[in-house]
Simulated scan of single mutants.
Amino acid sequence: MRKAADVAEEAANSQTFAAVARAGYAVSGLLHLLIGVIAIQLAVGRSGEADVSGAVSELANKPAGPVLLWACFAACAALALWQLGNAILGYRHASDNKLTKRLSALGQALVFAALAATIMSFVMGQGQNSRESSSDFTATLMKAPFGIFLLIAVGAGIAITGVVFAVRGFRKKFTKDLSLSSNQSVHQFQLWVGVVGYIAKGIALFLVGLLVVIAAVRVQPEQSTGLDGGLKALKEQPYGPYLLAAVALGLIAYGLFLMVKAKTLRT
């Protein structure tokens, strides 16, 4: 067991593996850029699916779609394994091995594993509308014992995560994970995309969590429509198109931040 752990730790610290894993952040950044662009299209009255499935579908429809999807899958899968290694084996620097950071690594491992699974579903030609899958998941959970209470807890958790993202953006907490540039212009760009991006991502997550809670309270699983439904619901509010456009630009900023993170992540 000890030997296996040493091999796993050596693999996790491999420069080649780390480079592929960090590319997972760039992939997530690209998908957020595409989601933001689709959301802007929704704001001006065009159609689209402003969520991960919609973004992956956009990539799949490109001329080099299959190659792009395989590359994106590899990067996200590697990042999921890398973060899982951080959660289980710990970080290289002892000061980073706090329980909260290792739990955060576990959370990221689950997020990128899910993202890799979504991409693979499109590679296999089985990509599903995430709006429908969100409703199906909600309906299934409602049928379970104490399902409604569990669903409310899930929705509240997502909404709280959104608040945490927004606070992290306001307080610039993300900077401790980056190697910030000494160039003033680049430094300001890193801060700008981080602040705006985290706040917009927080708003989007809060909307998703709110819809889950509403669906549970009303026992109407069709109202749990994921990110796409949350953004479309935002458009129906007073000044909705302007609010949606603002969040869309924020998601684009978050996508740019993730690309910056892929390059400047402190390890």
Rank of each mutant, 00 (worst) to 15 (best):
L244H: 01
G36T: 09
G125E: 07
K261L: 08
N61K: 15
A50E: 03
L110R: 05
R131S: 13
L115D: 00
S133W: 08
E58V: 12
A77T: 06
G155R: 01
G107I: 08
V217G: 01
Y254P: 00
Y198D: 07
N61L: 14
M124Y: 15
S185V: 15
A43P: 12
A23E: 13
V167F: 09
T118F: 06
G90F: 07
Y91K: 04
G125W: 10
F174G: 04
G125S: 07
A215N: 07
L30T: 13
I160V: 15
Q128N: 09
L81T: 08
N129E: 10
K3R: 10
A246H: 00
V20D: 08
A77Q: 09
T161Y: 09
D228H: 05
A21L: 02
V52T: 14
L150K: 10
A116N: 01
A87I: 07
A75N: 05
L249I: 12
M124G: 05
R168E: 08
Y25V: 00
L265C: 10
M124F: 15
N86H: 13
F170L: 15
S47R: 11
I119F: 01
L31T: 06
Y91F: 14
L191I: 15
G202P: 00
V196L: 13
A153C: 07
F189H: 14
I119T: 10
Y25D: 00
V154E: 06
G155D: 07
S53D: 12
Y91R: 07
A71S: 12
A114L: 09
V37C: 09
D177R: 11
T161W: 06
R131L: 13
T225H: 01
I148Y: 01
T175Y: 03
V247H: 05
V37P: 00
A71D: 04
S133V: 09
K101Q: 10
Q126R: 14
D6S: 13
L103T: 05
R92H: 10
L178S: 01
L150F: 14
L89K: 03
S185I: 14
L231V: 00
V212L: 02
S224I: 01
L150D: 14
L234E: 03
E222K: 05
Y242K: 05
A64Y: 04
G127C: 08
A74E: 09
A26F: 07
